[in-house]
Write a protein that binds this DNA or RNA. Sequence first.
DNA 1: GCGCTTTCAGTAAGCGCTTTCAGGGTGCTA
DNA 2: TAGCACCCTGAAAGCGCTTACTGAAAGCGC
Lengths: 342, 342
Amino acid sequence: MQPRTHVTLEDVARAADVSLATASRALNGMRVTPQLRDRVLAAAEQLAYTPNAHARALAGASHRTVGVICHDVSDPYFAAVAGGVMRVAGDKDLLVMLASTFRDPEREIAYVSMLRAERALAILLIGSGFEDPHWERALDAELKPYLENGGRVAVVSRHRSLKVDSVLPENRAGAAAMARALLDLGHRRFAVLAGPPALTTVADRLGGFRDELKKAGVQLAPTDVVEGPFTRDGGYGAMTELIARGLTATCVFALTDVMAIGACAALRDHGLSVPRDVSVAGFDDIPIVRDLTPPLTTVALPLQQLGEKAMELALTENTGRRRRILRMGGEVVVRASTAKLA
Amino acid sequence: MQPRTHVTLEDVARAADVSLATASRALNGMRVTPQLRDRVLAAAEQLAYTPNAHARALAGASHRTVGVICHDVSDPYFAAVAGGVMRVAGDKDLLVMLASTFRDPEREIAYVSMLRAERALAILLIGSGFEDPHWERALDAELKPYLENGGRVAVVSRHRSLKVDSVLPENRAGAAAMARALLDLGHRRFAVLAGPPALTTVADRLGGFRDELKKAGVQLAPTDVVEGPFTRDGGYGAMTELIARGLTATCVFALTDVMAIGACAALRDHGLSVPRDVSVAGFDDIPIVRDLTPPLTTVALPLQQLGEKAMELALTENTGRRRRILRMGGEVVVRASTAKLA
DNA sequence: GCGCTTTCAGTAAGCGCTTTCAGGGTGCTA
DNA sequence: TAGCACCCTGAAAGCGCTTACTGAAAGCGC
């Protein structure tokens, strides 16, 4: 950004033949004689002036930027949540800085640090945290000074680490409800496609599911749980492994819809029909799954709202001392991917 | 951000008992005696110091931020392209500011202005432009001063307006290729699900398709083209309308995969089978469509690469005077959603 | 008509950092 | 040992803007 130097407020002031202060005030809509104001505005327009947001932020005017950190925008889950965040941010005239960590804890911390440097007025962390004390401490170390200096933080889908406002999907309860729904359909032999055990979401959903089965006297053996990345290909791979082992389950519960989609593909590729041969259920209710054939049974989360609420929490003053926690969603939507067993 | 005032470089310098200059140099890895450097680093660590990116940018250090403006992150098309952008940005240690315009031209311009104010080192515009002279002029007015001051701009999927580096999906050629492929399958009666006519992408894809059909002696009547928003529901609505009118086509070409997905849902809801009753084809090859039942025939675009290339174009010096144009993708992928007619 | 408040423009002091410039050691050479 | 070249460090000048604070002019009541 070297070439020609920028048009500055000083240029505008000179062109309008007023002082810096007056120009600044005119541009910011403070009380100024209409005549002067018009002159300033005209000069600014004519010079294609854009105030330097950095100078402005530095000089004390709060600047309108919020940061959002998620695992991967191209995952429909995060895309939907981010969509909600942006809706609210757009309404409030905020610029959103969106970063993808690609599930690298290091990178997450680096991004928080960058956003801190940007003096973002809020930071939103979207998506499961990692069960890693070292990471937790490092994140805390970044966030604490940020909060102490008036930064706002809200998180979606993580609870352990931080004392900040949170929007929590009903992971445990939702998975439990799913277990009940599947039991009601007559299933007794299950397999689970799980994600990386370091993600808190995995622990919650798996735990909820397993515990509820146990209540009904159904055991989930360790071999019934296959791990894979939280991606379509992860689901495909996990399902393939399950098939290779000799599939005995009548119903497969994937911990995310994206994995469920991969699982369905794997089943199809092996000549197995859903739900005739195997039932499949997912979690999240990302928009696409209702349009699959068969449409996917899943635990519905109001994804867009998750993002909206988080943004609102972060933006609204927290007068009480306590962190606010919103639990959302968790209703089972039974669709055609799960069969009723006789 | 009032409460406690931030830890500044001055605090660090004082704690380390060195001058501001030395502290700055130590933190930025310039030549400083190891002993002093360590003292500074320790002090910074201890105080949880984060440099103020604004002050830094203002003082002249280039700041590592790029802006991306797209229509809607929660659309899988943009999510995938944005994913590519972020991959490259992540590698180069850049922060990405991502904005969604929700297809509002005003908002697009507002965002460019904000990014200009942020002194983003590059701005990427992703997604079809609008065929609207007023908007074009306004956008130009924002972008020109930005470019003149050394800002970099690259666009994906729009060509008319600006003299900037572009990555162009092969919209025309791809649609033409699709026409040929469908003709080869034996289809002769078509319908098209189009998007808002103000989008250049619509004109290109529709034009390419129509012209190629004409070459084969197949006419596309105005009533064969139904418009709707570029969304799943838009596709659903358009298809429903087509059905209501009495569907005569043997094959429906949706101008985007997302619309095609909606169209398939509409067909299903009306008891029509794809591809037995009607063939459906889309455009884009968003990741999900290979996992649909039936998998969607479509024109493949390397979405992630689109984003990567755009980012690279913007970041790499353009020595030649001319804008660089990359044409990408456009190969037809025939899958099971289109039937071969006897 | 005089002294008061009120209004509005201008002056100047930073915001937190980078970077130029100058000064003072240090190690060589002659 | 004097002289020179280096290498570091520190002092200070901004970067472009906001915002007290100051001061002048105008409006008001008695």
